[in-house]
Design a protein around this nucleic acid. Structure first.
Lengths: 213, 213
DNA sequence: GTCTATATGTAGATAGAC
DNA sequence: GTCTATCTACATATAGAC
């Protein structure tokens, strides 16, 4: 058993499993701390503590605080986009407005329901959406997919002006993020709790009705 | 013996006009900087520069960074609540869902359209709504009025469950803040600009239709 | 790749002159 | 009430040992 890679030094060595696991822990920790406290409220030290790694390791994998932040946001964006576009492609030919909106909304909830890291990611995205300094980042990560859905929505509501469809889409995204990040706020207001499954249906119905109007 | 009473503030003297103006400049500046950068991203020095005041003055009027932040959020909340409740009271007897939602939504836009400081305030509120650390502050400032409107909405949609009305209200608030803080984001997506007046009508219609569904 | 120690900057806060 | 000067603490980042 010769260890080939031990002596070879190509342009970039494949990272070891150990290194990849560390890297994932660093980004998961960054995701959680950034989601809790925002970019400026988070510190490299908090992230290091959360990850169970020394401070230097965060810089090594993250490459500075704002690169770390941007990569943390970008990391899951491709997965999310793909899930959304696949859901859209799965719709049979005469799609309804509700079905298109659900193809956009549900994948995020499915991921969030089964993985708490995706819930952290949702809160992180909410922070990004509110802070004007990350507009370019947000556009890079999410606009391409948004354009695809926007085109589909326009096709289903040809009578609406471009402004109206754009507005409706912004309202839909805002409502989706609010529900994703509410974490019981709605139950507080309502006085009791209910399965999230129904809430997603309500969100889709709410937005679909809004678009029709 | 009389030492304690002597050193205690007898009662607060009425502040001079000059002092009140300075105080207002401090809070306006804090509002803008907090709206731009969030709580942690803002610094006392940025606020001082924005206000054209020395650093010590910010502490004097604000009393520490987080007290300053909370007072900045609370400062306009009463005005907003009052405007909303008055708009609600002005509705004639058989109110529609759209009219009730408009009574909630339009006052904020009216203030924001005529005063850029209210636009800053809207962005500040968006930051607060996304950061879990300010949940108590947010509840204190906005929940009482929200309860009034929620009761009215329930009256107009007796068939809906408490969960559904609470959800719809959260969606409405999220969409409202998104539109208030969009600052041309919607025009970007739509490819052209349009008067905000129509956008508010669209928002009301969107949400009213959602509630009916 | 991983971890420690440290350099450098700037934050929030305050004491005291005016 | 207003402003200056300064204290203390902790941030990011990096150099270099392992």
């Amino acid at each position: 058993m010769n260890k080939v890679q031990a002596t070879e030094k190509p342009r970039q060595r494949a990272p070891s499993k150990r290194a990849l696991a560390t890297r994932a822990r660093v980004f998961d920790a960054a995701e959680k701390v950034f989601a809790d406290r925002g970019f400026d409220g988070a510190t490299i030290r908090m992230i290091a503590t959360e990850a169970g790694e020394p401070v230097g390791t965060i810089h090594h994998h993250g490459g500075g605080k704002d690169v770390l932040f941007q990569q943390t946001v970008a990391r899951r964006a491709a997965t999310l986009s793909q899930a959304r576009l696949e859901a859209l492609a799965r719709l049979e030919a005469p799609a309804t407005m509700a079905a298109v909106l659900e193809a956009f909304i549900r994948p995020f909830f499915d991921l969030a329901l089964q993985d708490p890291r995706w819930r952290n990611y949702a809160r992180l995205v909410a922070f990004v959406s509110v802070d004007g300094r990350w507009r370019d980042l947000s556009a890079e990560c999410f606009d391409p997919t948004a354009e695809v859905f926007l085109a589909e929505i326009k096709r289903l509501a040809p009578h609406a002006t471009p402004q109206q469809t754009a507005e409706g889409f912004v309202f839909t995204v805002a409502a989706m993020l609010a529900l994703l990040t509410s974490q019981g706020r709605i139950s507080d207001l309502a006085g009791s709790s209910q399965a999230q499954a129904a809430q997603i249906d309500h969100l889709v119905a709410f937005c679909a009705a809004g678009f029709v109007a």
